[in-house]
Amino acid sequence: MTTPTTVLITGASTGIGAVYAKRFAQRGHNLVLVARDNTRLQALATALRNEHSVNVDVLQADLTQTGDLHTVEARLRDDASIGILINNAGAAQSGSFIEQTTDSVAHLVSLNTTALVRLASAIAPRLAHAGDGAIVNIGSVVGLAPEFGMTVYGATKAFVLFLSQGLSLELSPKGVYVQAVLPAATRTEIWDRAGIDINTLSEIMEVGDLVDAALVGFDRREPVTIPPLQDGAQWDALQAARQGLLAQIKQSTVAERYRGFIR
């Protein structure tokens, strides 16, 4: 019997990452768990080994630190058993753009975009060469909605969606599945860490429900999975409208509404 591929999960010590670890362990996958909190990682790893008889390696790493990031990249490049990357590590922060410091904004961008794209870049060539594997990038519905007021966070998640869609177009013909998962508000520690009171949110999804829905999309090989979206036809309509827009903006002629006399 073929041994299931190993799954590397970032941000695995708690929340979405920890539930992904539990679900893939239940499916019989060996794991590589990555996060900053070594104590939590070790406790989770021990529990999963005992409950599911899978191999679980722990990589303590802060993905905003160059040395730690390079260590995880090397593991993704060199460990041929890793066939699935769950790019989950991320952060948010409270306050408006002008209230946030330049350093805090840069830190957020570093974790939510730079680390994510570097890890995808580390594993993608190997998966494409093998003609198999998957990259799952955790985005957010906030990336679709500047109206939500989380400007930098939303911008990083818009990047995650665009990157995932572009990678899907490039890698799917080579046998590599790429999925973007777009949660809405989910009950995780990201809110406390960002200084946001979760009790101020009117609706919030339980993390187990979020991951289970995302895995339904994973098994269906959806390019984009939006667990809270009730009417999937709305996403299809948005994509169709976007494709229609592309047909209009590939022209070499200035639009009539912008033509006029130059003063």
Rank of each mutant, 00 (worst) to 15 (best):
210 L>D: 03
257 R>L: 15
180 A>D: 00
198 I>N: 05
60 Q>D: 09
84 I>L: 11
166 G>D: 04
263 R>S: 15
129 H>S: 14
187 R>S: 13
255 A>G: 09
115 A>M: 04
114 T>F: 13
212 D>A: 07
225 T>R: 00
73 E>C: 15
166 G>N: 08
207 V>H: 04
208 G>T: 03
34 V>F: 01
74 A>T: 15
135 I>S: 13
214 A>S: 10
168 S>D: 04
145 A>F: 12
149 G>W: 02
141 V>T: 14
257 R>T: 15
116 L>E: 04
49 R>V: 14
62 D>L: 08
86 I>Q: 04
42 Q>F: 01
92 A>E: 10
202 S>K: 08
47 A>T: 15
170 E>M: 04
153 Y>W: 02
222 E>D: 15
186 T>V: 15
251 Q>W: 01
196 I>E: 09
99 E>V: 04
156 T>I: 10
33 L>R: 00
199 N>C: 06
19 V>L: 08
70 H>T: 07
27 R>D: 11
47 A>G: 15
69 L>A: 13
145 A>W: 13
241 A>R: 12
157 K>D: 03
11 G>P: 07
12 A>V: 04
64 T>Q: 12
220 R>D: 08
132 D>E: 14
50 N>L: 11
155 A>H: 03
258 Y>H: 13
18 A>C: 06
139 G>V: 06
161 L>Q: 05
129 H>M: 11
236 D>V: 11
75 R>E: 12
81 S>M: 06
144 L>T: 12
116 L>G: 03
22 K>T: 15
195 G>Q: 02
6 T>L: 01
236 D>M: 10
216 V>N: 09
14 T>D: 14
206 E>F: 03
23 R>N: 10
133 G>H: 06
202 S>M: 06
221 R>H: 10
205 M>I: 11
27 R>M: 05
56 V>Q: 09
85 L>E: 02
188 T>M: 05
194 A>M: 01
226 I>V: 11
75 R>Y: 08
2 T>S: 13
86 I>H: 05
52 H>A: 13
32 V>G: 03
57 D>K: 02
68 D>A: 07
22 K>N: 15
100 Q>T: 11
163 L>P: 00
220 R>V: 02
34 V>R: 01
126 R>K: 08
104 S>L: 03
57 D>S: 09
39 T>K: 11
188 T>N: 06
227 P>L: 02
72 V>T: 10
94 S>E: 06
80 A>G: 12
159 F>K: 05
161 L>H: 08
117 V>F: 05
72 V>P: 00
114 T>W: 14
144 L>H: 06
230 Q>G: 05
128 A>P: 06
98 I>A: 15
188 T>Q: 07
156 T>Q: 03
259 R>M: 07
230 Q>H: 04
130 A>R: 00
56 V>F: 03
252 S>W: 01
154 G>T: 09
92 A>M: 14
110 S>M: 05
8 L>N: 02
21 A>Y: 07
3 T>C: 09
180 A>T: 10
222 E>G: 10
231 D>R: 08
123 I>G: 02
154 G>W: 00
132 D>C: 14
162 F>Q: 09
